[in-house]
Computed example of a mutant assay.
Amino acid sequence: MAQESDGVYQFTNDLGALALRDPFPAGPVVVSDGTSLPPRWNIKRELDGILTIWTELKGRDQRLYMSYAGDPRVGTPLIHTSVPTRWKLLFGSDDFHMILAVPADLLAPGDKDGLAIDVGSSRSYPIATELKRLDVASDTQNWIMQSLTWGYK
């Protein structure tokens, strides 16, 4: 498992950055080119190495956790909720990329090879995200984690 410290990060790939499309309850997590809400994500590592990931919007005293709609299955869309969701960081295709995956203990037997955050199958703008079968070689599952902790307010 990859070791990143607690802090504020931006997750990007060639298509854009993981962001909230809107602040409404259960709103989608999208890949944005800058037209969505700010793509700043807080990471808190638990003792077992599992992460919680959330963002906070200015003027609101509420955490919006990166999550998914229902149980983690292939094709399940990513959303934000007020309830923490557990994630695992894996090494990506090279030294510069990470994969955000569902922890093994949350997977259904048919998904034992893993599920990771990927772009959605449907064409939409901004680009929707969903869970797909873990594929370390997939460009759309590999994210660059840029630390925004220094100088972030």
Rank of each mutant, 00 (worst) to 15 (best):
Met1Ala: 12
Met1Ser: 12
Ala2Arg: 14
Gln3Ser: 13
Asp6Ala: 08
Val8His: 04
Gln10Ile: 07
Thr12Val: 06
Asn13Lys: 04
Gly16Met: 03
Ala17Leu: 07
Leu18Cys: 04
Leu18Met: 02
Ala19Trp: 02
Ala19Met: 04
Phe24Gln: 11
Pro25Leu: 12
Pro25Arg: 10
Gly27Ile: 02
Pro28Phe: 06
Val30Gln: 00
Ser32Gln: 07
Gly34Met: 02
Gly34Thr: 01
Thr35Tyr: 08
Asn42Leu: 09
Lys44Val: 10
Arg45Tyr: 00
Arg45His: 08
Leu47Cys: 04
Asp48Arg: 03
Gly49Lys: 03
Gly49Met: 06
Thr52Leu: 03
Ile53Glu: 00
Ile53Pro: 01
Trp54Asn: 09
Glu56His: 05
Leu57Glu: 02
Leu57Cys: 02
Lys58Glu: 15
Asp61Thr: 11
Asp61Ile: 03
Gln62Glu: 14
Gln62Met: 11
Gln62Arg: 13
Arg63Val: 01
Tyr65Ala: 01
Ser67Cys: 09
Tyr68Gly: 05
Ala69Asp: 15
Gly70Thr: 04
Asp71Val: 15
Asp71Lys: 13
Pro72Phe: 00
Arg73Thr: 10
Arg73Ile: 07
Gly75Asp: 01
Pro77Phe: 09
Leu78Phe: 11
His80Ser: 11
Ser82Ala: 13
Ser82Cys: 09
Thr85Asn: 12
Thr85Leu: 06
Trp87Ala: 04
Leu89Pro: 06
Phe91Thr: 09
Ser93Asp: 15
Asp94Ile: 07
Asp94Gly: 12
Phe96Glu: 15
Met98Asp: 14
Leu100Ile: 15
Ala101Thr: 14
Ala101Gly: 05
Val102Glu: 09
Pro103Trp: 07
Asp105Gly: 01
Leu107Gly: 03
Pro109Glu: 00
Asp111Gln: 01
Asp111Trp: 02
Asp118Cys: 08
Gly120Gln: 10
Arg123Lys: 13
Tyr125Gln: 12
Tyr125Thr: 14
Ile127Thr: 15
Ile127Gly: 01
Ala128Ser: 15
Glu130Ile: 05
Asp135Leu: 10
Ser138His: 07
Ser138Pro: 00
Thr140Met: 12
Gln141Ser: 01
Ile144Glu: 11
Gln146Glu: 14
Ser147Lys: 02
Trp150Ala: 12
Trp150Asp: 12
Gly151Phe: 00
Gly151Tyr: 06
Tyr152Gln: 00
